[in-house]
Amino acid sequence: MAVIAMREALNQALREEMTRDGNVFVMGEDIGVFEGSYKVTAGLLKEFGERRVVDTPIAEEAIIGTGIGAAMLGLRPVLEIMTINFILVAMDQVVNHAAKIRYMFGGEVGVPVTIRTPGGGGQQLTAQHSQSLEVFFAHVPGLRVVAPSTPKDAKGMLKAAIRDDNPVIFIENISLYNTRGEVPDEEYLIPLDKAEIKRPGRDITFIGHSKGTLLALEAADRLAQEGIEAEVLDLRSLRPLDCDAIVESVKRTHRAVLVEEGWPTYGITAEVSATLMEHAFDYLDAPVKRVGGIEVPMPYSKPLENAVIPSVERVLEAARSIL
């Protein structure tokens, strides 16, 4: 197994799917000559040409709207929105159209579009450039929403997303593009609806996604030094949520700390917490704890940003309060 960076894994997924299926094409701002603001589309223009690697004007609503149109005729557009923050000007296309077209057409026409976009903060990019908005999408029936945390998952899930017949919001994270991990040499897919235990443990379950999973893993390492074995469950998929995996883990550990980078109010952690209340109440030995971003727009100043973004320390603090 090769060890590669997240951006490389995503790049491989795009290249492999474009090679496999002539209907797959990529479209977005600065993705051709420039190879993407985060270099995920590196080399694709050279390999596949301008017909299938389309640099667009700065028009997110048109990028997603035309992607939807092309998808309805059976193409497989993979749209890059430079950061999740900029998708907000195109939410009508996502929520009112991509998510509903199949239903409104009585199942006759689908929208097999994949929208890749990175969220997350930590780079001093401030209020309108650092948000974790996955919950906006995870709220909407008709969308699939995934947010992988490792290069292996990212590659396998992006390939699966492109092959999926539904609109998939594929959420990357600006601070994870350089994280490295093992990726199988042979072709593989990872299902879009399954969480995965990233570290088994018996004393407490940490549940997260994207960067939240990495914080949880680090916190689990620290607790292990004290003889506490935390299990880390990586959600990977946010819609649908893998309720079985969540409940099954907590039934064994009886304690849960939920971690997300975004604001926890009405957040992913709120949904997981509700799932535990409904399906694992009798197994809980302590209240469920949540760790997320402090509920303010992201400030520019480094000390302020550090205070706002969830940290390993805050995960540990939450864990210790219920252990």
Partner: peptide, 24 residues
Amino acid sequence: ARQFPNHFSSRTLNILSGSSDIAT
């Protein structure tokens, strides 16, 4: 120290704080 660099503003000089989102 909250706003993005280059997003200058002043209520007294009538300069509105800028946006990181193009054209908004």
